[in-house]
Structures are given as C-alpha cells and as structure tokens.
C-alpha cells in the first residue's frame, strides 16, 4: 500500500500491536471509533505505518481496504514518516490573495524538495499544503509544528527555516 513501505522488525510490530490494542480498548471496538483511533496512533508515531493499519483492521474487524480508504480520504493522515518539523502552508483564499503560493514555491526551492516528495532530503522538514488555518485576517500564514507565523514573506521564510534547521541540528527534536 504505502509504496515506500517501511520495513519493520519484529519488535516494532509487537510495540505497534500493543499500542493499537490499548487505543482500541480506550475508544471501543466499533466502526465509529476508527477515525479517533487512527488519529491517536498518528499523534504517537507521527505517521501511520502500514503495519498499524493492518493491526487496526484486525483489532476492529474492519477490512484493511476500508481502513485504507478512510486513511486516504482525509488530509490529516500521513503514510510516510514525516520530517522533524512539519510546515503547513495555508492555501486558503486570504492567504492566496496575499501571495502564499509564492511563499510555497520559494520554500520548496529553499528546502530543495523534489517534485514528487514532501520531505526535504535532510529529513528535517515536511511541507504540507493545508486548507485554511482560520487565521485569515493575519494572512499569509504558515504553521511550523504548533507554532503559527503570520504575515510571512520570503525573508521571514528564510529566517524561520534557518531557525528550525539550527534547532534540529542541536538535537532538540520534537518527534524524538
């Protein structure tokens, strides 16, 4: 399913199983709980490895195909391991009018992200385009981790990137 299927060793699959079991116990074994369970797993692992989907499928008794269908439908779910920092570029109207698409293009070139990828080669940044963060009055807006930056321009982007790059190099990683 995930083309770059991450190979997991036995120990890791066991850990995932244990975590899924725990999460399923908390949310209940029903179809309704599928999305919250997936959200909770992603919050812990940073993404949804293939094995976690298989595990959720067997724990909930929902076909894997169905789980995958849900995962691919919603923007929130990520199937590949993300970089240390996730940069969300708001692509809402107000941000577009105030030229966030230019910021986006600039960021891709600044981080040297390949056309078919969303993560920078050094594995520090993953850039996602999101639909409106609801901060339209202070557009254009980008979000790095939980931090929102408003009224950004190219200079500001340079500053933000070098700040986080330095932070990542000194080893204070968020998804450690």
């Amino acid at each position: 399913m995930d083309s770059k299927g991450v190979q997991l060793i036995n120990e890791e699959t066991k850990n995932i199983d244990r975590m899924v079991e725990e999460t399923v116990r908390r949310y209940g074994r029903s179809r309704k709980a599928l999305i919250p369970i997936l959200q909770s797993i992603q919050a812990k692992l940073g993404y949804l490895p293939r094995y976690s989907l298989e595990s959720v499928s067997s724990h909930l008794g929902i076909p894997l195909s169905n789980v995958y269908g849900v995962v691919t439908f919603y923007h929130q779910f990520i199937l590949e391991p993300p970089g240390t920092y996730i940069i969300q570029m708001c692509m809402g109207t107000a941000c577009y009018i105030r030229r966030n698409s230019e910021n986006y293009r600039f960021l891709l070139s600044l981080l040297e992200i390949e056309p078919n990828s969303r993560t920078s080669k050094d594995g520090i940044f993953t850039v996602l385009r999101v639909r409106c963060l609801g901060c339209c009055s202070i557009a254009p807006v980008i979000k790095v981790g939980d931090e929102v930056y408003s009224r950004v321009n190219l200079d500001e982007m340079r500053r933000i990137v070098s700040f986080y790059r330095a932070k990542a190099r000194t080893g204070s990683s968020k998804h450690a």
């Binding site: 029903s30 179809r31 309704k32 999305i35 997936l38 849900v70």
Partner: peptide, 25 residues
Amino acid sequence: VIRSAGAFVCGEETAMLAAIEGGRA
C-alpha cells in the same frame, strides 16, 4: 466532541454524518 480528520466536503450534512459514523465522508 469529534475531531474531523480534515476534508472540506465534511461541511455537507450527509458527508459529515458519514464521517462521524467512521467512514469516508
């Protein structure tokens, strides 16, 4: 309180109900 996993179409009534039921919206 249910946290949507994010899809614009969830704003449509019947799609939102499908999302709450745990499926594709």
